Amino acid sequence: MSQLPWLQPALQQFRQQQQAGRLAHALLLPLTVGDGGLLLAEQFVALTLCEQHSACGMCRSCKLLQAGNHPDVHWLKADGNQIKVEQVRELCQSLTATAQQGGYRVAVIEQSERMNTAAANALLKTLEEPGRNTLLILQTDISSSLLPTITSRCQRVAAPTPTAAQVQQWLAPQTLTDDVLAWALPVLGGALALRDALQSDRFAELAKLKDAIEQSFISGHVDPQLADIKEDSIFDALSLSYRVLLQQMRAGNKDAFVMSAIAALAERIMRDSQQLRRMPTVNYLALIQSYVLDYNRLKN
């Protein structure tokens, strides 16, 4: 945690609220997994359950937590692409039991934006009446996708996304240009994900895919690398396509009509990306071809 400076203000705020006895019963943590959202949630859990309120690592609660079998901690994540109503109901039922260690009962919902409508509605009663010494932490990658009825019942944690300068300093001695950071951070999902990608082949593969997308938009023909795109790469391709179009818009070297059309195409790509996660089968090549053709029609 000390090596991730952008997490420190939120951690300090939590400690102050805990020490003052003003800890909320439900926290909305709007920081992506790739930027350390789950690491921060884990630290909140450790501070809440520690007998010394310091994540000491030595007390019984800390040792149970480190072993991964603390009976008063409940972690919930998506089953497939969604968090389903049955999962939330089971979680809510678990939180009604008395804390076995005599302290808090804590629940963490990872990527809580994945709750379907029924699951979100099933959580409302527990958010309204959580019971004594109960803490719910809703980590989210996309807070705007949560129902207003959920967010209004949570205290929002001030955990801003790290700036490009913070990421650059943290990655040192790696040196990446601002232009690279502008596309790599959002496509990969955050600073931690970027670090991991740089330590493997993933970053180079994404850079190659981005080049293929740019060449496709320039030439009007789908690059051979995209001709046989698979399901495990389609979301990278869509995200990169969106970023390439954003770069075109920022360049500002086209008339207003074309800029508006590019913006509409970029919006369509992101909308398609969201819908694809719920579709069993799609002709991915045809989808990419449609973007390239539409871009060239508006460009010419």
Score class of each variant (00 low, 15 high):
residue 193 A to F: 06
residue 125 K to W: 14
residue 123 L to T: 10
residue 196 D to C: 05
residue 68 G to C: 10
residue 296 N to P: 01
residue 188 L to P: 07
residue 94 S to H: 13
residue 3 Q to W: 10
residue 245 L to K: 13
residue 11 L to F: 04
residue 40 L to Y: 03
residue 42 E to P: 01
residue 241 S to G: 15
residue 162 P to G: 04
residue 267 E to T: 14
residue 179 D to G: 09
residue 247 Q to P: 00
residue 238 L to M: 13
residue 144 S to G: 00
residue 141 D to T: 03
residue 9 P to A: 08
residue 160 P to L: 06
residue 147 L to Q: 13
residue 173 P to D: 07
residue 275 Q to V: 10
residue 104 Y to M: 09
residue 188 L to Y: 07
residue 160 P to W: 05
residue 162 P to M: 02
residue 182 A to V: 01
residue 93 Q to T: 12
residue 168 Q to D: 12
residue 87 Q to V: 08
residue 253 N to F: 04
residue 292 V to P: 15
residue 115 M to C: 12
residue 172 A to N: 09
residue 24 A to D: 06
residue 279 M to G: 00
residue 237 A to H: 12
residue 178 D to L: 10
residue 48 T to S: 13
residue 96 T to E: 15
residue 12 Q to T: 04
residue 110 E to R: 04
residue 75 W to S: 03
residue 60 R to K: 12
residue 19 Q to L: 13
residue 294 D to I: 06
residue 246 L to M: 15
residue 19 Q to C: 04
residue 285 L to F: 13
residue 226 L to H: 12
residue 74 H to G: 03
residue 260 S to G: 01
residue 154 C to S: 04
residue 297 R to H: 13
residue 189 G to T: 05
residue 185 L to I: 07
residue 233 S to F: 02
residue 139 Q to A: 09
residue 300 N to L: 03
residue 143 S to W: 00
residue 59 C to A: 11
residue 246 L to F: 10
residue 201 D to G: 13
residue 285 L to M: 12
residue 273 S to H: 14
residue 7 L to Y: 04
residue 290 S to R: 15
residue 6 W to R: 01
residue 127 L to Q: 12
residue 78 A to Q: 05
residue 118 A to N: 14
residue 252 G to P: 05
